[in-house]
Design a binder for these strands. Structure first.
Lengths: 189, 189
DNA sequence: GAGCGATATATCGGTCCGATATATCGGTCC
DNA sequence: GGACCGATATATCGGACCGATATATCGCTC
């Protein structure tokens, strides 16, 4: 998860850990809550594996700013992480949302497949939760009922939301097309 | 987190690990996704600490059903975990939602304080996200914009939702009152 | 009584969090 | 100039939790 986020941000420009943390928080909001306790070790691991590199070499980094940039190997790793989406990406909102932040780098058919598979998952969950809510409503306290209602509402909302995005995708010409839907990749007006 | 969930469920009736996992999933839906890899160790730890106990003693549990029940020490631990709510309970939805499942066991003033403190947190986050969205909307790709929009909408929705619950709380006579809002604790019709 | 899917427990490696410690930078106040 | 301080920046440790894997048992059908 964090690896993907770090590499995705480093694709835009080289950064140091502190800045990465800030950008993750501000771009992903509640979905990118990572701690330094995982961020810095992750950067070290990525460096060791050759996915990112830094100017000042291993000697005596002390505690000065340490700017990392992504390597070609890192780009490949990013692509691999982005394309292979296990069940957790479909079933966990945070994982899905992190992917969404990098949808522009994803092959349109992967994008569509992912949205549809999450939609399917949510549909199934909605089914179960709605049934369960109906069954046990009478024997449960009001707070627990409220909790389940929240879950049902969210599932319904997210399904509509995904449908809108899928519709937009189609309108922009993605049965299995190339990159659309990004207004101007670098037109940083 | 898991400790609280386990103890909370065991308050209703003794259960074994497998059943606990099922009930967590069905009662908490997407907010109670715990794995066996943490559940079983947690049960062992709680047993070692005297918070739960089981019939068949330590000798040769092999792999037969292992029913745990909560002890008085466990009840105290539950109360302590429920009342002390650090920043993560305010800032992380899952942690807050898990608490919600046990709101009926909470002192009304703790309940109110918790809802208000989450409301405050969401309000602050909404502020930041809305500003950030306005600022960077033009330079970002459509998917990232959609991600931020989702975050803003959710915050707004959750604030309204909390306001409704706080209003209900007040209507049911909780400035600082005792237990209301639970229709019939055991009227398992 | 063999076969099998659901029930049930255990464990390992690895990711991530939360707390804590430490260093550096850029002011500003005297 | 140097003492102080808040923001910037990195590092590390213990523990919670996940995901994968292994294993045992139960109840059913054939």
């Amino acid at each position: 998860m964090l690896e993907l986020g770090v590499l995705g941000l480093l694709k835009e420009k080289p950064m140091h850990g502190y800045e990465l943390k800030q950008r993750l928080a501000e771009q992903l909001g509640p979905f990118g809550r990572f701690s330094y306790g995982s961020l810095y070790p992750t950067l070290k691991r990525l460096a060791k594996d050759g996915a990112v590199e830094t100017d000042l070499p291993k000697t005596e980094a002390s505690r000065r700013k340490n700017v990392y940039r992504i390597t070609p190997a890192g780009e490949s790793l990013f692509d691999a992480l982005l394309e292979e989406s296990g069940p957790s990406v479909t079933e966990e909102r945070n994982a899905f949302m992190l992917r969404l932040a990098f949808f522009r780098y994803m092959k349109p058919e992967t994008r569509t497949r992912l949205m549809e598979s999450r939609r399917g998952y949510l549909q199934g969950r909605l089914q179960k939760m709605a049934a369960s809510l109906k069954n046990v409503k009478e024997k449960m306290d009001a707070y627990s009922v409220e909790l389940m209602r929240y879950g049902v509402n969210e599932a319904e909302h997210d399904i509509r939301w995904l449908d809108d995005m899928l519709e937009t995708e189609r309108r922009n010409g993605n049965g299995t097309n190339s990159n659309a839907a990004a207004p101007t990749p670098e037109g940083a007006r």
